[in-house]
Design a binder for these strands. Structure first.
Lengths: 344, 344
DNA sequence: GCCGCCGACTAAACCGCTTTAGGTTTGAAC
DNA sequence: GTTCAAACCTAAAGCGGTTTAGTCGGCGGC
C-alpha cells in the first residue's frame, strides 16, 4: 500500500516529450505554446492525473491562495452570533469555487487580535483578510495595510482605508422597524443598541435616533456589548422605569430573545403590553412564542460579495465600494398595536 | 515605502559567517552545532528579525502546518449549533500556540463533502482533519485514510478506524436529565432525538431509552435532524397525543427552545404542565423564561483535546482514545415536579 | 542567398528552506 | 607520529513549481 508520490510537472514533461517550462506555460494558459503541443501536454497531465502542488506554487509565486478571517477575542461574540456562520458560508461559496481556502483564526487569551494578524501575515499564511465588526477609528486598517495584506471591509470604515468595502444599509433595517412600530401607534420606543465603538452598532443606533425623531418621538437608547446578558440587563432597566417603553428595538436577535425572557418574567405580555423587534432574523426567532419580528439581512450574500471583492483586489482590480440590497423587516408575532391605542 | 524583502536564512548565514545548512540546523535545535556558533546564529537571526518562510518550509518538509475542519453540507447545521463555535475556539487555543492554523471548509452546494476532503488533501492544504458529527458507518474514515491525511475523531466511530479519538460521554448527560425528571415524579418522559444516523444522536437516544427503562418508564422517542424546525414539529406531535408526556428531553438546546415555543403556544405552562431539558447549555438558554435546564458539555475543552491529539498524531504518537469529564446537568427553571405529583 | 525576426521551445536560475554527502579539524588512542 | 573517530561545518542537491535568458528553425524581404 505504498503511496506512489503524486506526479509532478517533470513527469508530465517527460510524457509529453517537452521541457518543464513549457508544461508550466501550457498549464497556465499562457501564449507561446503551439496549439498541438498544448493539447499534448494537457493530455499528458490528465493521463497522469497531475494536480498542481500548491506548496511549490506558493513558494514561487509568493501567493498563499488562502484568505483569513480573524474573530475577535471574545469567543462569545462568535458563539452568540449566527450572523458569522452565514457570513462564513457565503465566503466559502466563493472561495471554494476559486481554489482559495478560508483560514479561520480566533484571537485567544494568549494571542490577542493584533498578534493574530501579525502572525498570519508574518507566516505568509494568507493573501488577504476579511475585516468584520469595524470599530470606530479601527486600528486594524492601518495594521493590515502595514503588514502588506490585502483586505476587504464589511461596511465602510470611518478612517482612511485603501481597501474595498461591501456594505449593507443596516440603518435602513432599523428605520423600517421604527416605522413599523410607529405605525402601530407606539410613542415610547426604546433601542437596545450594540456598543458605540462598533460602527454597525453606532450606525443602527443613529438610524434609530433619527427615525424616531422623524416620527416625532424621543429616542431612548441603551448601549450594550451585543451579548444576551447585557441585552437582558438593559431590558430590565428599561422596563423598571416609571414611564416604560411600549416597544423595544433590539440591535440583534440574541438580545431580543433575552429581552423577551425578561419581559415575560415581569409578567408582561408580548406583544400586548410590549412589542419587540430583533435584528438578523435568526432561525430560532421564528420558533419562539411569540415568533420574533426581525430585520433580515442576507449575511450569506454579504459573505459572497466580500469574498469576491477580495479576490478582485488580489487580481489587481481597483478599490471598489459595493452596497448590497437593503435589509427587510420580517413581521411576526412579537409586534402589535400599542397598548391603549387599538389599531385603527 | 518599498517593502524590503524579509531576511532569509542566507542573510542570517552571511551575517553569522556560516553556511545556510548550519543555520537551518541551529534554528531547528538540532545537534551538531557548537554551542558558541549556535548562539551566534540565533543572535544574527534575531538581529535581522528573521522569521521562517512557511511556504519554503512547507515545500521542503512536505507539511502544511495547518489542520482542517470540514463542516457538513447544511450551513444551518453550523449556524444553528453554538457547539461549533466553542469547539473551534478550543481547537484554536491549541493550534494558535503551536504554529498551526485552522482551515475551515464548508461543503457548499457546488462542492459536496467528499469533494471537499479530496480537494483539501489534493492541494496538500492540511496535514490533518478533525472529524465531527460522526455518522453510522461513516465513510469519511476510509476516505480520509485513503487520502493519506491524519485525523482525529470526536467520539469513537462504529467502523474500524486508525485514528485517535476524543470522546465525551454525552449519554451520561442524558441519563442525568432523565434521572432528574424521574426524581421529580415524571412518569411519561419523551425524548426529541437527533438523527439516528448520527452517532451522538443515536448515543443520546440509547442512553435515554436505557435510563428510562431503568426508571421503569416507557421510552418515547421522536427522531429529528437536530433543527429547530423539526424540534418544533416533534413537540407538536408529542403534545397532541392523547396521553401526552409531562417532560421532554431534547437532544440540543435549539430544539428545546423551539419546543418551549410550541408548548407555550398551546397554552401549557413550563414547568408546571411540562418540564423541558436541553443539551449544550447554550448561553441563550439561561436568559429564556423559564430559564432552560440543560446538559452542559465543555465543548471548548473538547476542541482543545482534539487539537492536541491531532498534533500528537502528526508528530508520530501512537493512536490514543481519550475520554473527557462527564457532562453535568445544569438545573434551572424549565424543569419542575410532575403535574399532580407535588414534590415530596 | 543572406539577414533578421518571430514563434516555439529548452535550459537553467530561482523561490527559501531542509537534508544528505563530504570535508576539515581536533584530540584521544596506540 | 600516525590513525581514527567524533565533532563541526560546507557545498550542493533536492522539494515542485515559475520565469528568464537564450537556442533553434523557418520564413519573408531585399
Amino acid at each position: 500500500m505504498a503511496q506512489t508520490p503524486p506526479p509532478t510537472i517533470a513527469d508530465v514533461a517527460r510524457r509529453a516529450g517537452v521541457s518543464k517550462g513549457l508544461v508550466s506555460f501550457a498549464l497556465n494558459d499562457r501564449p507561446g505554446v503551439a496549439p498541438d503541443t498544448r493539447r499534448r501536454i494537457l493530455e499528458a497531465a490528465s493521463d497522469l492525473g497531475w494536480t498542481p502542488n500548491l506548496r511549490a506554487r506558493s513558494l514561487s509565486t509568493g501567493r498563499s491562495f488562502a484568505c483569513g478571517l480573524v474573530v475577535g477575542r471574545s469567543t462569545d461574540v462568535i458563539a452568540a452570533d449566527p450572523f458569522f456562520h452565514s457570513l462564513i458560508a457565503g465566503l466559502e461559496d466563493v472561495f471554494a469555487t476559486s481554489g482559495q481556502v478560508l483560514v479561520l483564526a480566533v484571537a485567544t487569551p494568549g494571542r490577542q487580535e493584533a498578534a493574530t494578524y501579525r502572525s498570519l501575515a508574518g507566516d505568509r499564511r494568507v493573501d488577504g483578510v476579511v475585516l468584520t465588526d469595524l470599530r470606530a477609528g479601527d486600528e486594524r486598517i492601518a495594521l493590515v495595510q502595514g503588514l502588506g495584506l490585502a483586505a476587504v471591509t464589511l461596511g465602510r470604515p470611518d478612517v482612511d482605508s485603501p481597501f474595498s468595502s461591501v456594505s449593507v444599509d443596516d440603518g435602513a433595517g432599523i428605520r423600517r422597524a421604527v416605522e413599523h412600530l410607529a405605525r402601530l401607534g407606539h410613542r415610547r420606543i426604546a433601542h437596545v443598541a450594540g456598543p458605540s465603538t462598533m460602527l454597525h452598532g453606532q450606525r443602527r443606533s443613529d438610524a434609530f435616533s433619527s427615525s424616531a425623531a422623524e416620527a416625532g418621538l424621543e429616542p431612548i437608547v441603551v448601549a450594550t456589548d451585543f451579548s444576551a446578558a447585557e441585552g437582558a440587563e438593559a431590558t430590565r432597566r428599561l422596563l423598571a422605569a416609571e414611564d416604560r417603553p411600549t416597544a423595544i428595538v433590539y440591535s440583534n436577535d440574541h438580545m431580543a430573545v433575552a429581552g423577551l425572557g425578561v419581559a415575560q418574567r415581569l409578567g408582561l405580555r408580548v406583544p400586548d403590553d410590549l412589542s419587540i423587534t430583533g435584528f438578523d432574523d435568526t432561525d430560532l426567532g421564528r420558533h419562539l412564542h411569540p415568533a420574533l419580528t426581525s430585520v433580515a439581512t442576507d449575511a450569506r450574500a454579504w459573505g459572497r460579495a466580500a469574498a469576491q471583492a477580495l479576490l478582485d483586489t488580489l487580481s489587481g482590480a481597483p478599490e471598489s465600494h459595493i452596497h448590497l440590497a437593503e435589509p427587510t423587516l420580517v413581521v411576526r408575532e412579537s409586534t402589535g398595536p400599542a397598548p391603549d391605542h387599538p389599531r385603527g
